[in-house]
């Protein structure tokens, strides 16, 4: 296919289409960058005069601020507890990633390599759990985490919830990947006298690096981006995570678009960087299992 395109259709046309799509894709992000660096709280890139000309209108669309200023960033960092919230998010997301990857890898390995009663039922139940509406779980989750486990307003409450919620998707993905790793590798290791634990940690996990990276990425994103459960479980302002805190800027009373934009960028940068870093694994990690099947 690839050679085909190159042979028959003009690469310029392809580039035109791709550039158009890419421009549309990144425009909203450029817009938020513009607002963030404008130093103003308004969501207009440029204010229009009384009778705007075509150029005035064009100026209001082009995503580049009239004056470049860091005022919004400084305000976000200094005025609110923003750094505390970022720190909270970092703790929650990191521990969610560690716990989520551990839980998913062990379970996925068992589902991929062992035959045992309840295997099919377990996998099916994971799949069905993706259909559970979040709204159905929220009131019971609150009761369990806050009243029974006594983990309200703590990081551990959030970490446990996030890492569990990410399990089903990660297990399915990892199982698909583990299935593609030839079983002969393990069999020869067993011949050499290696135990299951050794095989799991020394052979399987390194081989499954792409899928595990993707699992880690998704677990991290689950912990870093979620705000509904976080606002449900966290009562004190100093325990908020960054997404919950960000909602302050676009609250019901005032919309501080400039601060919100600056805050969004600070919040997004770590996860975007991580995403870009993991990108090379994304394709193979996500689709290895299903391609084979």
């Amino acid at each position: 296919m690839s050679r085909k395109i190159k042979d028959e259709s003009s690469p310029i046309l392809i580039h035109v289409v791709l550039i158009t799509f890419t421009a549309m894709t990144i425009y909203p992000l450029l817009w938020v960058l513009t607002i963030a660096f404008s130093g103003k709280q308004s969501l207009a890139i440029a204010l229009l005069p009384e009778n705007p000309t075509v150029w005035d209108r064009l100026r209001a669309i082009i995503p580049f601020p009239e004056t470049v200023s860091l005022a919004n960033f400084i305000e976000v960092i200094t005025e609110k507890n923003f750094l505390v919230w970022m720190g909270n998010s970092a703790i929650v997301a990191t521990l969610t990633t560690l716990l989520g990857v551990f839980l998913s890898c062990t379970a996925a390995y068992a589902f991929s390599r062992f035959k045992f009663p309840g295997q099919r039922a377990g996998l099916m139940s994971f799949l069905v759990s993706q259909m559970f509406p979040g709204t159905l779980m929220m009131v019971p989750l609150y009761i369990i985490v806050v009243q029974w486990l006594n983990l309200g307003n703590t990081f551990w409450g959030l970490i446990l919830v996030y890492s569990t919620i990410a399990i089903p998707f990660c297990v399915w993905m990892l199982k698909g990947y583990f299935d593609t790793i030839p079983i002969e590798i393990e069999e020869s290791a067993i011949m050499d006298g290696a135990s299951r634990t050794v095989i799991f940690f020394r052979i399987i996990l390194p081989l499954a690096k792409p899928a595990i990276s993707v699992t880690a990425l998704f677990s991290f994103m689950a912990g870093w981006n979620e705000f509904i459960i976080a606002s449900l479980l966290m009562e004190e302002e100093k325990m908020y995570t960054a997404p919950v805190g960000l909602k302050f800027f676009v609250g019901e009373h005032a919309t501080q678009w400039g601060s919100f934009a600056a805050g969004s960028i600070i919040v997004s940068v770590p996860v975007v960087l991580l995403f870009m870093y993991t990108q090379k694994y994304l394709v193979s990690g996500l689709t290895a299992g299903s391609v084979k099947g």
Binding site: L103, F116, V139, P140, L160
Partner: peptide
């Protein structure tokens, strides 16, 4: 007989039972 498989699935299953399936049942 299948203790290895169950040990490997136990952590994830426990979490799912307590924080996903139980809330689901309670919600119903």
């Amino acid at each position: 007989d299948y203790r290895e498989a169950y040990i490997y699935t136990l952590p994830a299953m426990t979490g799912m039972l307590v924080l996903v399936f139980f809330p689901f049942g309670y919600g119903i």
